[in-house]
Design a protein around this nucleic acid. Structure first.
Lengths: 188, 188
DNA sequence: GTCTATAGACGGATAGAC
DNA sequence: GTCTATCCGTCTATAGAC
């Protein structure tokens, strides 16, 4: 059973994770996180030495969740093609949030990466993880030495689909684009 | 010849346009714009009634420049395929800035669109303009009723390539992705 | 003298930090 | 809960153009 302190820390992290996504990092104040999480903002500096440190922990949490998801898909899905398609389906499952707030990692990276190179590198780890994992799946298909380029292309297309889904808010076209990405992978 | 007032307004706009791109909207203060432009901060409210109004004018300026560029390409390039390729070449020409700051419109939309729906709509106009223009070019090719979907796909792929170029900072893969987009268009 | 434009000091609010 | 810094935005005194 978690101690009260662990619960507070977890509540801060969960709330920060959500608000950084929904409102953006710079537009989310400690005040906001305190109000939503119920944890007084005075406590924040007991758990995190700065707002940047809080962000860093949020990113680490996201990285960890991605790792778990990817290992889960490797365990539960038997063919590389199924796994690639499952990865694409992230956009289908989260389409409502993506249309409202964009891709969590894409939008965060673009916002903070312009001024905080260190954070940008942290965020890039998640993209590298995703690209490498897809590259491994592609290698199991018969794509020769094209695996790195195709993996990069797949993540790029998912990012592009997310940006346009956010900006244009056109559900039909967004869905159409995802379907085309899936068809492209299925045809490999 | 522009009056002195027009020069000040223009200097504020140019500087804001650049800093909003390089540092992000929320991370750019009037103080910053004043220092870089040389125009004292006290003057800003003579020309713009708020920071949001300044942003709006910046976006309008970008929209206008896009319109001019697109009409220029229609005038100077004779075939639709050349025009589409010229559009893609934006990423090649601006690759250094895109790697450092992302796509100007993509990153701005994602940052401000989460909290300012009105500004998001303004920014979306530029994307609509681009998609529609490319759709017109595609219609002149023999793509049947695929023009809308292909135009959407082209802009999505350009956005995706920009995001990954920014996040991963991998010049080789970024170039490879652009080349693939070009090859795809050329094969149409 | 009037209108446009300038310059900077000032204030309330709110941020992150402790 | 306090502290300091900084944010956006306001106010006003003034300078130059015509």
């Amino acid at each position: 059973m978690p101690t009260k302190g662990e619960q507070s820390k977890e509540r801060i992290l969960e709330t920060a994770n959500r608000l950084f996504y929904e409102r953006g990092f710079n537009s989310t104040s400690f005040q906001d996180i305190a109000e939503v999480s119920g944890v007084p903002k005075g406590n924040f500096y007991f758990y995190f030495k700065s707002k940047g440190a809080l962000l860093e922990t949020v990113i680490e949490g996201r990285l960890e969740r991605f790792r778990e998801a990817l290992t889960g898909w490797e365990r539960d899905l038997s063919t590389p093609k199924e796994r690639l398609l499952r990865c694409i389906d992230m956009l289908v499952n989260d389409r409502a949030e993506i249309e409202r707030y964009g891709c969590p990692m894409g939008s965060l990276s673009l916002e903070i990466g312009k001024q905080q190179p260190e954070m940008k590198k942290q965020a890039a780890k998640i993209f590298r993880l995703l690209v490498d994992w897809n590259e491994n799946q592609l290698r199991e298909l018969d794509v020769g030495d094209q695996a790195p380029a195709l993996a990069h292309r797949l993540i790029a297309r998912l990012q592009g689909a997310s940006v346009l889904a956010f900006v244009l808010e056109d559900k039909i076209r967004a869905r159409e684009e995802i379907d085309d990405i899936k068809a492209w992978i299925e045809a490999l």
